[in-house]
Amino acid sequence: MKNLFKTILLLAIVISAVFTNPVKTVETEFESDIKDVAELVHAKDKRADIPTLMESIGNFFKSKNIARNIYYNGSRNLDIYHKKNDKTKRTVVMFIYGGIWTFGEKTLYSTLGDFLYDNGYVAVIPNYAQFPFGLVDDMVYDIGCAIKWVYNNIHKYGGDNQRIILMGHSSGAHLIALTLIQSSLNYIGRLPNIYKAVLLNGPYDFDVFSDIAKQTGITPENSDLEKLAKFVLGSQNACPTDILKYFPDKSISYLGANKFNVIITGEDALVPESSAQGLLQQIRRTSDVPFSYYIMPQVGHSGLTEGLMRGDTGIQGFVLYVIAN
C-alpha cells in the first residue's frame, strides 16, 4: 500500500509539472526522492507547446497520406504516413515520442509524420505502453514489436526495410537507446538490423541529474534519482549508459544500429548535455560503432520536435540533415 501511494503521488507530481507553468529549477540540495522528480520535470523552457500539439491532433483526422491505427502486436497500434500505391522503396523513419515515460499519443505528432512524408520518407509513429499501465520492460517490448512489424510489413507501404531509421525525442530517445542496446546484448530477443538511430534530447544516464553532478561536474554512481527512476520504470536495467559500463573496452561489435546520431539543444533546461556525453563515451569505449554528435543552439528541450511541426525552416533543415547523414 505504501508503494502504491508513492507511485500515485509521484505520477500526480509528474503530470502536474508537465501541464502547469514551469518554475525555476531548484538549486538547493534535494530533500527527498519526490523532490528529485520535481526537479526533473520542472525547467526553464516550456514543457509543451499545447497549440501545436492540438493542431497536430486535428491534422490526424485531415491527413490524406496516412494509414491509421494499424495493430502491430494485438493491443498497440501505429500510423503510417506514405504515398498510396507507391512502389518506390523509401527510407523509413519510425518516430518514438517522449513524455517522461507517462504521457503522449501518436496523434499528437501527426504533423511530424506528414512533414517526414513530404520530405520523401515513409513515417511510422506507434503507440506504446506508458507508466503506470506499463513499466520499462513493457515499453521496450512494444517498441521491439513495432520494429519487427515494420521490418516485415513496411514494403506494403512503399518502405525499404533495409533502411529503417529510429528517431526518438526525450524519453522516447532513451527507450530507443535502451531497446537497441538490450537487443544487441541479448537481454531481449534480437531485433532486425536498424540502419540508423537519431536521438533527440534523451536522458540516457540518470546519475547526471544529481546535485553532485550539477555542482561539481563529477557524475556519481547510483544517484537518488537513478534509484527512483529504476523504481518507477520497474527495472535495474533501465539506464543504457549503466548497462554499457559493465562491458570491457572494445568488447561489443554491434549495438543494434549501424550508426547513432545524437542531438542536444543549447537551451535544454531539462536534460543536461552530460547525459548524451556519458552515453557516447560508453559507446566509444565498448565498441567501434560510429556516431555523430550535434548541438542545436538557442533551442529548448522540446524545440526540435515542435519546430518541425510548426514549420520552423531552420530546425526542419537541421533535422533533415541529421537524418540523412
Results as ranks from 00 to 15, higher is better:
Ser32Cys: 04
Ser223Pro: 11
Tyr321Met: 13
Asn258Cys: 05
Ile80His: 03
Asp33Trp: 04
Lys62Gly: 01
Gln130Gly: 02
Gly168Leu: 00
Met1Lys: 15
Asp224Asn: 15
Leu180His: 10
Ala129Arg: 11
Ser253Lys: 14
Asp242Ser: 09
Tyr141Asp: 14
Asn59Asp: 14
Phe206His: 03
Ser16Trp: 15
Leu270Val: 04
Tyr117Thr: 03
Asp268Leu: 01
Tyr141Pro: 02
Phe95Asp: 01
Ser292Cys: 12
Ile80Arg: 03
Arg163Pro: 06
Ile243Trp: 00
Ser253Asp: 13
Pro240Leu: 00
Leu320Glu: 04
Ser210Cys: 12
Ala146Pro: 08
Phe209Glu: 06
Leu308Trp: 06
Met94Ile: 03
Tyr81Gly: 04
Val208His: 01
Ala324Glu: 12
Thr52His: 05
Tyr71Glu: 09
Val208Trp: 00
Gly98Tyr: 00
Phe260Val: 04
His42Pro: 10
Lys24Met: 13
Gly98Ile: 00
Asn73Arg: 03
Asp33Gln: 10
Ser171Pro: 10
Ile57Thr: 01
Phe318His: 05
Gln316Val: 10
Asp49His: 12
Phe209Ser: 08
Leu225Arg: 08
Gly168Arg: 00
Ile243Cys: 01
Glu306Arg: 00
Glu306Gln: 08
Ile66Gly: 01
Tyr204Phe: 15
Met139His: 02
Gly256Ser: 04
Pro51Val: 10
Leu228Val: 08
Ile218Leu: 07
Arg68Met: 11
Gly99Arg: 01
Ile57Lys: 06
Arg76His: 12
Leu78Tyr: 06
Ala177Ser: 10
Arg190Phe: 08
Pro290Tyr: 04
Asn65Ile: 06
Asn261Arg: 03
